[in-house]
Design a protein around this nucleic acid. Sequence first.
RNA 1: GGGCCCGUGGCUUAGCUAGGAUAAAGCACCGGCCUUCUAAGCCGGGGAUCGCGGGUUCGAAUCCCGCCGGGUCCGCCA
Length: 561
Amino acid sequence: MFLEFKKEAEHVLKEALKKASYEYEGVDLEESEHADLASRIAFSLARPYKNSPAIIAEDIVKHLEIPAENTLIADAVAVGPYINFYANDLFLQMTLQEIKEGIATERKRGKIILEHTSANPDGPLHIGHLRNAIIGDVLVRVLERAGYEVETQYYLNDMGRQIAVVVWGAERLAYDATKKTDHAVAEVYIAANRMLEENNELLDEVGELMRKYEAGDADVIRKYKAAVQKCLSGIQASFERLNIQQVVFVWESEFARSGAVKGVIEELKQKGDIKREGAAILLQLEGIEKALVIQRTDGTSLYTTRDLAYHRWKGKNCDRVIDVFGKDHELVSQQLAKALELLGVKAPEFVIFAFVSLPSGSLSTRAGRYISADELMDKIEEQAYTEVDKRRDDLDESKKRKIARKVGIGALRYDMVKVSPDKHIVFDFDDALDIEKKGAPFIQYSHARACSILRAAEEKGYAVSEDYDAALLKERSEIELIKKLSKFCHIIEEAASDLKTHQVAKSARELAESFNLFYKDCPVLTADAELRKSRLALVDCARIVLRDVLAVLGIEAPEEM
RNA sequence: GGGCCCGUGGCUUAGCUAGGAUAAAGCACCGGCCUUCUAAGCCGGGGAUCGCGGGUUCGAAUCCCGCCGGGUCCGCCA
């Protein structure tokens, strides 16, 4: 409902500006701690109209006309240079009504192909991939909630040297059948790398595998598929445990063999600024100093070219392309965008996130220097279990485990998504396992409390009904809570347009905070019958929005904790 | 060497795109609150030259320039 309120305030303010004959660019209407909405427009009018901001604000307010009925605005006043808008009782009432009826998200806004994670299938996901996967997955959920149809893709780099090393290693070493499959693959990969380092002449065999794979040798393809699938099934299991939504795996090799890569190279030769160094082909892109190699001296394709073919295909098959990439892909993504422009295909929108490193340095699967997502999940769930166990010895074992899973994975997801993607993270195990009080468990706890009130109400025969009077909700904490609830759509809209998921995490925490204040201030079950009905309605609305905002974060909402 | 990103209380961060109302939170620390719907909660307290130096502006954490520290990338790896 906040969006409707903002729209109306904007309209009213624009009318006043027109009436007072001010020329303006934007109305500069923002959320504020001092009002429900505040405009700073008087500052920017001060200079052209040679008057103090306070006088101009006063003048604008004089011309302001708030409709007599059917309005969401209670009042608009000039406070010094600021014009402050306040929402009225109808706004509060409509907010609750809208939540109860279900917030409409029927608007169809087109199709998005979003790519995230795309980790090489040479081992398990590690904490770096985790950041990619979680940011990507929350983005998917935000965009879906905002009305887009989203297909999530995982680009599978099966043509690189790493995978060739895995395939080569698998012919000489046995997978450890006792381990999760992706971990078994990593062991072979690490061991194979060591063998190759000690015997450089064996590298030719790896090169031979790569050539045969690109050429389409049936036997080699079979070996590759087996190795990649082995790793993938492990990765997929981790995704499920992390509550990552369904992804479609797109194999890089398909673009190489389908002729799409050749097609891209031919097209770039015609449309681009090409130079040749021997048999290699280089593409000079506008504004980028370094030329992009699009074909090797030996005539084979490169990762970049194949990626270009992939992105051309994506661009043609949806309305928006979004890529969640690590910082190391920043230059590559700029080159990609420029080259796609040459090809006449829309460029992707990039969400670039900074690295996760360990105190000992950067992560490396090949060197075995990483913390796997599985290990982290195991430990955090265990930690969550001891926390549950500490508080709830009345519950049976399976119930405690179930809650611990939700809390542990939730805490992990929240911690990853709460910080801005361009912040570099140095991973600290103790820190990660310190189930932060104001993180996911805090929000989940608020949800559980709301559920608990509703359960107790039902037992006493006080069912939530449509028959309540929102006007009875006059306590400060009640009003604050409703206002927080009203912002849900606004938060989703902002996150969907800025592609900034960490703000959703922050808003979710603030909502939980508001609920906890209400919980403390306003007894529900012991209130008078009429007030009780209103408060029960509010609790139910809070439950719905807390559940929804957690769902957008991909965090499960337990009904008890 | 060049490009891009980050630098905010002891620690982790939000705010920076579109400059404005006392710089906002969490952790840690100190003190208080469970006979009332789950204390994973609530209330109070101390603690910040917003990396440093200039500039623009009536006004700068926010914009511009320089420097320092960290990260990342820089043609035939992916």
